[in-house]
Design a binder for these strands. Structure first.
Lengths: 155, 155
DNA sequence: CAGAGAACGAGACCGAGTCTCACTCTTGTC
DNA sequence: GACAAGAGTGAGACTCGGTCTCGTTCTCTG
């Protein structure tokens, strides 16, 4: 049941992303299609290198996806707010689906031990960041919270 | 007056940092001394490259400071919690003084327009992050909040 | 179906950060 | 003070995410 929900969510995001790009006047292309499919299957951030590895070893017969196409597509998706770019401090950018039909806005815990990235969401945190912006007089468009510590598995 | 305060704070941090390193059994060395002096004069984050530029053009007669020494020293300072490593998402690590006698723990607003990094601190935010960790059952050692938006100058 | 131009892949290139190694300097000991 | 041990240092080669270029391939429109 959960799997079905996730699958549906994934399909929704992929369809939504494609619709946005087509409406913006973009052609379709093999690299883009496969990258969108890959991202749609994830539930947390994926680094460009992981994406490259996954798409480079294409299935038999498929043309491999070039590195340039991956970065180009990620940039395009990011420009249309279809993807969130995440920096955790290890010098590697990570990307995850975003937008109306994707999972909720969330943040991350980076485990000091195993290096795993654990997503979490918290309404109270969102509220207090909103109030914070008002208090400081900043007009903010986005924010990012990263906790460092021990993930549940490593405690 | 403010200048004097800042100067004192800077001196304090530099002295504190040196004391911590000596107590840990480290020798002194020209590169380290100059890097500590440089950091002590800053009030916000400095990238390794900016540090390298500043120290490479050493004053007449001084031996230039090598890149390896800079990264080594920054790593050492970080290991002793004398410095905070900050990642803003542009692929460049930034460092700023930290510890008992330095400025308070703070976070940053990254301006979408001018790219400036504006430090701020907020006790309510700290409290809500603390409560958040408890609520989620994470044991956190550190956290980082980055807001994106327009800085006061660019509004 | 043909042309325009968007999308693509290979690979050269860039630059922040790491590693190595021979040299220099600080520190403790006599 | 002289000295030895070994911590600290600088030059430069190297790594590896990420960018850029360019000739080719593919998609869409007419």
């Amino acid at each position: 049941m959960l799997a079905t929900m996730l699958a549906d969510t994934a399909t929704d995001w992929a369809a939504y992303a494609r619709a946005v790009l087509v409406r913006a006047g973009h052609h379709r292309g093999a690299a883009r299609e496969r990258l969108i499919d890959l991202l749609a299957r994830q539930n947390c951030a994926l680094s460009a290198i992981e994406i490259e590895d996954a798409l480079r070893r294409g299935r038999r017969g498929q043309r491999p996806v070039g590195r340039a196409s991956i970065y180009r597509t990620l940039e395009l998706l990011h420009a249309h707010d279809l993807v969130i770019r995440l920096d955790v401090g290890d010098g590697v950018a990570r990307y995850e689906p975003a937008g109306p039909t994707s999972e909720h806005h969330h943040h991350h815990l980076l485990c000091d031990h195993c290096g795993r990235l654990v997503p979490f969401e918290d309404a109270a945190l969102e509220r207090s960041i909103e109030k914070l912006s008002d208090r400081l007089g900043f007009r903010t468009t986005d924010h990012e919270v990263t906790l460092r510590g021990d993930c549940p598995d490593c405690r």
